[in-house]
Write a protein that binds this DNA or RNA. Structure first.
Lengths: 207, 207
DNA sequence: GCCGTGCTATGAACGGCGTTCATTTTGCTT
DNA sequence: AAGCAAAATGAACGCCGTTCATAGCACGGC
């Protein structure tokens, strides 16, 4: 069957690309090397993918799936009955998982953003819907901590919280002087999440 | 004088590169176009800069200087006598300036990070020392809000705070579904800075 | 079992990139 | 005015992603 060969080559290409990125980063992914690694001709890549961008998006989809799995594992906790303190603890755990995933999958994780910045082509649909799914993990515990505002506000806070953690992880793992050093990152993230949520729960005096 | 011609060409190249980046982003900066814009031969670029990276670093240095100037303007407030509430307000202002600078200088600001990610060459010294200078603006007010911990801890918090704001701005300006939409960014950033610092000032009950 | 036919796989070739370097031009010294 | 070192030049190089004319293969009708 022809579709089988197609599907199989597609799989080999994605896996080879994934391995190349994991090994040396997105910048080291070259069409010619990839063809060699997947055991096909250079041009065969373009029978399966429109261009390299499309292939990278496929790799990124898998990375996101792995991230989702990692986050879901932490959420295995009894989601239903969380007290505010335990909800904060849960959000701390999620943030730490994000940090550890990024650290353990440095190149693949970096490719998630590096790529989008370089490429000006419109991202496929799933890049809009998929990451939003990941927010389920955040919004659950967040509802316990911030029951008062409406869902829309809470969603906004969830997104901003994610962005903030993302920034801390991004700069932290790059070992830039503007960020906390790696061995302090976990503590800083825990402190940050706890302080932020406590500050949100109890708006007080000055303002 | 020979050094004059050299210096003048250098200036023209940096300005042309700055304009090209501001117009269409780092990805649109091409050696051939640059030479044309600066009115010199293609090879002349390499009499002044070792490679394009070095030129981009020069542009980034100017961007950082402009950012520093923008931040310094906000710090023109009487730095000496700040109460905790006004210190928080000052930090909010700094964060908003960062957001507005990024929004108003989108491409130049993006180039600051985009470049570093792509290039694997070691960054020049000033990329280590310069950004740290910018932290002066944060650490002042932060000292009012968090007088208790030692300077080292406070420095760590300052860096984490910056990283978090950076993440919110980064994802927010990209209009990604994981981030807050642009028209909500200012409010979210203000809320975050205030909540975080209040949460840090008054560690309480659970933990 | 064989042949025609349509589709897929192929890798040389293309255009564009940053960078190099033999050559030309320049500007200063004698 | 002549000589010469140093700087400016742009054609050429190597590498990149992508294309496309061609080769080869699988498959349905005889």
């Amino acid at each position: 069957m022809v579709a089988d060969r197609h599907a199989e080559l597609r799989k080999r290409l994605i896996e080879a690309a994934e391995a190349a990125i994991a090994a040396n980063g997105l910048g080291a992914l070259k069409a010619r090397d990839l063809a060699k690694a997947a055991g096909c001709a250079l041009g065969a890549i373009y029978n399966v993918f429109a261009d390299m961008d499309e292939l990278i998006f496929a790799v990124n989809a898998r990375t996101l799936a792995r991230l989702d799995a990692a986050l879901a594992e932490a959420a295995a906790e009894p989601a239903g009955k969380l007290t505010p303190p335990s909800a904060i603890a849960q959000l701390q755990r999620l943030a730490l998982i994000y940090l550890r995933f990024a650290a353990a999958n440095r190149h693949a994780w970096t490719a998630l953003f590096e790529h989008r910045m370089t490429s000006e082509k419109p991202a496929p649909d799933w890049t809009l819907t998929r990451p939003v799914e990941l927010f389920t993990h955040i919004e659950g515990p967040l509802e316990i901590v911030l029951p008062e505002p409406d869902a829309r506000t809470r969603n906004l806070v969830a997104r901003t919280l994610f962005s903030a953690i993302h920034g801390i992880v991004l700069l932290g793992l790059e070992q830039r002087p503007v960020a906390a050093p790696p061995d302090e990152l976990e503590a800083q993230i825990s402190l940050f999440v706890a302080s932020l949520l406590r500050g949100m729960m109890r708006p007080d005096a000055f303002d």
